[in-house]
């Protein structure tokens, strides 16, 4: 119950901050900090695959509707929701899929959390920026945007995880 409320608050706050603040500010050349992805990245690892797809769809539609991107956010958020299981296995091992905790640097350990977060962001950003470009012309710009956005989004996800209630049993 409380966890559901916390995730709802995270959804609203992350999406609004993304649309109203981060997407309107020019912070770094080539890069966009993607705070809204914290809603998917910080889901418990044992979250049902159907539920993850539903949450990905919800997040993508909300972002598309508020930023007028006509499907780009839905394409990439669905992709991240679908591959997150694979990302967890790749970055943390198969055993992690049984864990019901909220991912954070505290429970995973700093190195493992950054590895998981950067991997998830990279998987997402490759799809997001290739679909945004819709061409392989100026590929160096697209690649720069993938790398820079991945690196600069990670601290925002870390901060969201730090502020998010852990709900973990001691």
């Amino acid at each position: 119950m409380y966890r559901g409320i916390a995730y709802s608050v995270l959804f609203v706050v992350a999406v609004l901050l993304q649309v109203l603040l981060l997407d309107s500010l020019f912070i770094i050349p080539f890069g966009v900090p993607m705070l809204y992805l914290s809603f998917l990245i910080l889901q418990p690892f044992d979250r049902n695959a159907f539920a993850m797809l539903g949450l990905g769809l919800l997040l993508g539609l909300a972002m598309d509707l508020l930023s007028g991107m006509d499907g780009l956010y839905t394409i990439s958020a669905l992709w991240l929701a679908f591959v997150r299981r694979g990302v967890v296995i790749l970055s943390l091992g198969k055993d992690a899929l049984r864990e019901s905790f909220v991912p954070s640097a505290r429970v995973l350990g700093g190195g493992r959390f950054w590895l998981y977060t950067l991997s998830a962001l990279l998987f997402h950003n490759v799809v997001f920026f290739l679909f945004e470009a819709l061409t392989f012309d100026n590929l160096h710009i697209t690649l720069s945007r993938i790398v820079v956005s991945t690196i600069f989004s990670a601290p925002f996800i870390w901060a969201a995880a730090k502020l998010f209630p852990s709900f973990n049993k001691k």
Partner: peptide
């Protein structure tokens, strides 16, 4: 799950 994903993704791509 893969089927739903592909279906939703195809619809989103077509819309985009």
């Amino acid at each position: 799950v893969p089927l739903l994903f592909v279906l939703a993704e195809v619809l989103a791509i077509l819309h985009y």
